[in-house]
Structure formats: structure tokens, C-alpha cells
Amino acid sequence: NITNLCPFDEVFNATRFASVYAWNRKRISNCVADYSVLYNFAPFFAFKCYGVSPTKLNDLCFTNVYADSFVIRGNEVSQIAPGQTGNIADYNYKLPDDFTGCVIAWNSNKLDSKVGGNYNYLYRLFRKSNLKPFERDISTEIYQAGNKPCNGVAGFNCYFPLRSYGFRPTYGVGHQPYRVVVLSFELLHAPATVCGPKKST
């Protein structure tokens, strides 16, 4: 009989979020998941679920829940969905086509923008091939755009693969920082350890 609540607040209220190319993952297990707390949290810009209804989450049990978190621009949030393409979905964070879970995003301009620009948040701009679902690539190898080998030196046709967002408070909404948490639900042939409040007695 599990009684402790799942530590969703640790994920959602973290002081610093990860850059999207180096997205953070927390495994959540052996706890009671009260999703209504999240669902009623006012400032969400997006709360979209795939393969599961957000209002039914509290009735369900899962083997594991993974909480992935990172920061992207407002106009990139739409790429955090199954079957998407674009710089983020291709080179930074890719969801599987059969994704079961929820994508939760909110504007973090007050936290993550600075006058003069916040350059701490990076994304991958160049990559030889697209990421596989949930693949994480933190390499900083110089990207070779031409035929000539770069030998690890940036220059003509040789690019550092990461780019900084440089968030400023005055940017338009599409270019403002958004914090994103992706909850993915794993249902294995194993005992369920993460259940909603109704199922955990």
C-alpha cells in the first residue's frame, strides 16, 4: 500500500531547467500520482495528452512514469508532439509516433530571460542525422557541412553544433522561453508502482 505522493513538484518547480539538447529525465516510481494538482495549476500554456485522457489519469496505474524537462522557445512547443519535424524534434528531443503521455508547457519569461540576454539555454542546430525517439545527444563535436574534414576547428563550413537562445524579456511570445515537462507513461508486464489516488488503496 503506497502512500507517499509522487515528487512532481520537484520537477515542475525546479529552480533551473535543462537546455533542450541535454534534456533532463527523472524516473518516478513507487508513489501516488495526483495529476489533478498539475491539471489545476493555472499558468499552463499547453497540457496535451496522447493515448490517454488527462482527466482519467487519476484512475490509472503505470509501471513507471518518466518526467523529461527542458526549455525551448514558445514557437517550438508545437514540435513536442508525435510525428513532428523541425530543429527541436529532429536534433534535440524526439517523441515516438506511438507516444503515451502528456506534454505540459508554460511561459517562463520572468524566470529564464535576462536584460542583455540569458545565454545559458542551448539547443542543437546541426546534426548529421535525426534523433531516434528519446535519444539524447550531448556531443559538442564540430559539425562538418562541406567535404573538408574540420579536425575539431570551427570555421568555413565547420560549425559548433550548439546555439544559444539568448532570451531577453522584451522578445515577442514566440521567442520567449517556455518550460516543458513531458510525462511518459510506461506500461510493462510488471507490477504497477505509480497509481492515481483512487487506485492506491
Rank of each mutant, 00 (worst) to 15 (best):
N1T: 12
N1A: 13
N1M: 10
I2L: 14
I2D: 12
T3S: 13
T3Q: 11
N4P: 10
L5G: 10
C6Q: 05
F8Y: 08
F8K: 04
E10P: 05
E10N: 08
E10S: 11
E10D: 10
E10Y: 07
E10C: 08
E10A: 11
F12C: 06
F12S: 03
F12I: 08
A14M: 09
A14L: 06
T15P: 14
T15S: 15
R16M: 10
F17R: 04
A18G: 10
S19I: 01
V20S: 04
Y21E: 02
A22Q: 11
W23V: 02
N24Q: 14
N24T: 14
N24C: 08
N24K: 15
R25I: 02
K26D: 07
K26A: 08
I28R: 04
I28N: 03
N30K: 07
N30F: 07
C31T: 07
V32R: 11
V32D: 08
A33K: 08
A33W: 14
D34R: 08
D34Q: 07
Y35T: 09
L38P: 05
N40F: 08
N40W: 08
F41V: 11
A42V: 13
P43C: 05
P43V: 06
P43T: 08
P43Y: 10
F44K: 14
F44Q: 12
F45L: 13
F45H: 15
F45Y: 15
A46C: 10
C49Y: 05
C49G: 01
V52G: 04
V52C: 10
S53G: 09
P54C: 06
P54Q: 12
P54H: 12
T55I: 10
T55Y: 13
K56R: 12
L57W: 10
L57F: 08
N58Y: 08
N58G: 12
N58F: 07
D59H: 12
D59G: 11
L60A: 10
L60Y: 15
L60K: 13
C61K: 13
T63N: 12
T63H: 10
N64K: 11
V65N: 03
V65H: 05
Y66S: 08
Y66I: 12
D68T: 04
S69V: 03
S69D: 03
S69C: 05
F70C: 00
V71N: 02
V71T: 07
V71H: 02
I72K: 01
I72T: 05
R73A: 15
G74K: 06
G74E: 05
N75G: 15
N75E: 15
E76V: 05
S78I: 07
S78N: 12
Q79M: 05
I80G: 01
Q84C: 08
Q84S: 14
Q84A: 15
T85I: 08
T85D: 07
T85H: 15
G86E: 00
N87P: 15
N87H: 15
I88M: 05
I88C: 04
I88N: 01
A89N: 04
D90H: 09
D90V: 05
Y91V: 05
Y91G: 05
Y93S: 01
K94Y: 03
L95T: 04
P96H: 05
D97M: 13
D97L: 14
D97N: 13
D98H: 12
D98I: 08
T100I: 14
T100A: 08
C102W: 03
C102D: 01
V103Q: 00
I104R: 01
I104N: 00
I104T: 05
A105F: 08
A105N: 08
W106A: 05
N107M: 04
N107F: 02
K110Q: 10
K110I: 07
K110L: 07
L111C: 08
L111V: 13
L111G: 09
D112W: 03
D112F: 03
S113G: 08
S113M: 01
S113K: 02
K114P: 04
V115D: 10
G116Q: 12
G116Y: 06
G116A: 12
N118S: 06
N118G: 04
N118L: 04
Y119W: 04
Y119I: 06
Y119N: 10
L122D: 10
L122C: 11
Y123D: 04
Y123P: 00
Y123Q: 10
F126A: 04
R127E: 00
R127N: 04
R127A: 07
R127T: 02
K128W: 07
S129C: 09
S129V: 12
N130V: 15
N130Q: 14
L131K: 02
L131F: 04
L131A: 03
L131R: 02
K132W: 08
P133W: 06
F134Y: 15
F134I: 05
E135T: 08
R136W: 06
R136T: 06
R136I: 08
R136F: 05
I138S: 11
I138C: 11
S139G: 14
T140N: 13
E141P: 09
I142M: 13
I142S: 03
Y143W: 04
Y143L: 06
Q144K: 08
A145C: 04
A145S: 09
G146N: 04
G146W: 05
N147W: 06
P149F: 10
C150N: 01
N151G: 14
G152P: 06
A154C: 07
G155K: 08
F156L: 06
Y159T: 00
F160Y: 14
F160D: 12
P161I: 03
L162D: 00
R163A: 15
S164Q: 07
Y165R: 02
Y165V: 03
G166H: 05
G166N: 06
F167Q: 00
F167C: 00
R168I: 02
P169L: 05
T170C: 03
T170N: 04
T170S: 06
G172V: 00
V173P: 07
V173R: 11
V173G: 07
G174W: 09
G174K: 08
G174Y: 09
G174P: 07
H175L: 00
H175G: 01
Q176V: 03
Y178R: 03
Y178A: 07
R179Q: 00
R179T: 00
R179K: 04
V180F: 03
V181Q: 01
V181H: 01
V181W: 03
V182R: 03
L183C: 02
S184M: 08
S184T: 15
F185Q: 04
E186M: 08
E186S: 11
E186F: 07
L187E: 12
L187A: 15
L188M: 12
L188N: 15
L188R: 15
L188E: 15
L188Q: 15
L188D: 15
L188T: 15
H189G: 15
H189M: 11
A190K: 14
A190M: 12
P191F: 09
P191N: 14
A192F: 13
A192Y: 14
A192L: 13
A192D: 13
A192W: 11
A192S: 12
A192G: 13
T193D: 13
T193S: 13
T193H: 12
V194M: 12
V194R: 12
V194D: 11
V194Q: 12
V194T: 12
C195A: 12
G196C: 10
G196I: 11
G196N: 12
K198N: 15
K199H: 14
K199D: 13
K199W: 15
S200V: 14
S200M: 15
T201I: 14
T201S: 15
